[in-house]
Design a binder for these strands. Structure first.
Lengths: 288, 288
DNA sequence: CTTGGAATGGAATGTATGTCTCATTTTTTA
DNA sequence: TAAAAAATGAGACATACATTCCATTCCAAG
């Protein structure tokens, strides 16, 4: 009798993950209707947590009594105690993203010590990632990648705060064996470098407010040469935006006066690897 | 009569945030016991979502009937409909961090198009931030900041993939008016630069597997000169770890062969700004 | 101090809920 | 194929529940 097994089995799943594992484990050996509920339960755990036995049974297309039997098969003494597990899951599962961030920020603002600073930067980075993940325009991404994939040489243009991103792009392009040229201010030969760029090339330009004048100037020059520009910047009023064929607006959160780079980095990497993939694909097609 | 106001007020709060705002807004004008419940409800929203009217009332120290009146004051027709709002909050609040990441990763792996690549990098960055947020050793952070704050010049040492982080550190240190020297390979004068470093200085060295041989060599040389090193690396077996006075283990998630830099960036910024703060503080103390 | 009205406590009430029982159907075993 | 066992469906039932009602207390205005 199933009740016997239930009472014998002392290891009643008390947490959702164990329960889930138990269900998946026993799936084969369970009656049809029970499996039907089991599937519904794992697919709609929220409904189990909040619904009544009758409503759940109706949604799953079974009788309430079957729901009870399902619970008993798993070792619970009734639907109610099974439901507790589903409720605990909602209670204990990590608080929402926003709440976690709020906690981090609160610690960062109120808290003392350097851990608070660290938390602040983590929070800023997370926020930025979260924002861009929602805001990114897929069409722009495709456009930018197509544009860059066509380029003979990709010039990477960024100064000051954006420079780390540029250097990472250059590194990644290099690893992907995509010809690229990092335009740094250090060497002092920017003007000459830029002069080499032709409309067959392309530029990734990155600049955030306050826009480094050199970046803007160089972007202007290079766009006047007919070289298409993909810009990553922080506002539609950015001077970069007017020179760019495609441009992305990235809103980076800041902490302690230093803006995060995480969102820009993610976008930069996506562009880079996207170009790499696109080149591989078109390369294949040409051969075929 | 309160019921009249309730029926008159058509704008019944249907979502948790509105409800919260409404409660906080009316707090002053509500009866004592109602406020008592209101406070309990905002402090223990999960209990409201799962408990029964009786159990909640007991926890809040009031009568069940008061709970009903509270709901009615807010425009609901009973406790049950008030409870719905608290349940929706749990349902609709963004799925847990892990679930969201899983979704992103699933999209990144299964999905086509370049958006998937982007999602992959965002997921990798988020994961890294999440991991380091838990794993960071606060004592190490304090030690590292103290060490660096004492330094006359902070040398920043990193190549290849870690170089963007180094360049951002150098930028930030510069903005904070902290003397620093970025040791890049480009100029080819690394050996000479390193020779200037004394035990009164300090080094931030960053290197991940596969460790750039130049970084390791330079770290060895500089540590033999008695210059203390703060290392950011990815394993306790890292050659950097053995030269370092303080070292951090940062596990960066990777996507498409490119590891995220977000966690390293956050740590780097925390170190930098931490040093800045520490210097300000000790500066003040000396004056006082 | 009195009185009107709101606020509160506590018990009564009707409903909705989980659980159980039993008849019926399906599946397994001999 | 027959018999036994398991699974299922559907209704019955007790209980726990939200809600309501009424008596009492508290508070403020006159």
């Amino acid at each position: 009798m199933s009740l016997d097994r239930a009472t014998m089995d002392e290891r009643v799943p008390r947490d959702f993950e164990t329960l889930r594992a138990t269900i998946l484990d026993r799936r084969e050996s369970l009656p049809k209707r029970i499996v039907q509920i089991a599937a519904y339960a794992l697919d709609n755990p929220d409904d189990i947590a909040f619904g009544t036995a009758a409503s759940i049974a109706a949604s799953a297309g079974v009788q309430p009594s079957t729901l009870i039997r399902f619970a008993q098969q798993l070792g619970f003494d009734g639907f109610t105690s099974l439901q507790q597990v589903f409720r605990e899951r909602l209670r204990e599962r990590n608080s929402s993203y926003d709440e976690r961030l709020q906690a981090l920020r609160a610690k960062a603002e109120g808290g003392a010590g350097h851990r608070a600073i660290f938390d602040g930067f983590v929070a800023a980075a997370s926020t930025s990632l979260n924002d861009i993940s929602r805001a990114l325009d897929e069409a722009h991404l495709e456009d930018a990648i197509s544009l860059l994939a066509r380029a003979e040489t990709i010039y990477v243009l960024a100064k000051r705060r954006s420079y780390p991103v540029a250097s990472y792009i250059a590194y990644a392009l290099g690893k992907l064996k995509i010809r690229n040229q990092l335009i740094e201010s250090a060497a002092g030969l920017n003007a000459e470098m830029i002069a080499f760029a032709t409309p067959a090339d392309a530029v990734i330009a990155i600049s955030f407010s306050p826009y480094a004048p050199a970046t803007i100037e160089e972007a202007r020059t290079i766009s006047e040469q007919g070289v298409p520009i993909v810009a990553i910047t922080d506002s539609s009023f950015s001077p970069l935006a007017q020179f760019a064929k495609v441009w992305f607006e990235v809103a980076e959160a800041d902490f302690a006066g230093f803006r995060s780079l995480s969102a820009t980095m993610a976008l930069a990497m996506a562009l880079t690897v996207g170009v790499g993939e696109k080149r591989r694909d078109t390369g294949r097609k040409r051969k075929a």
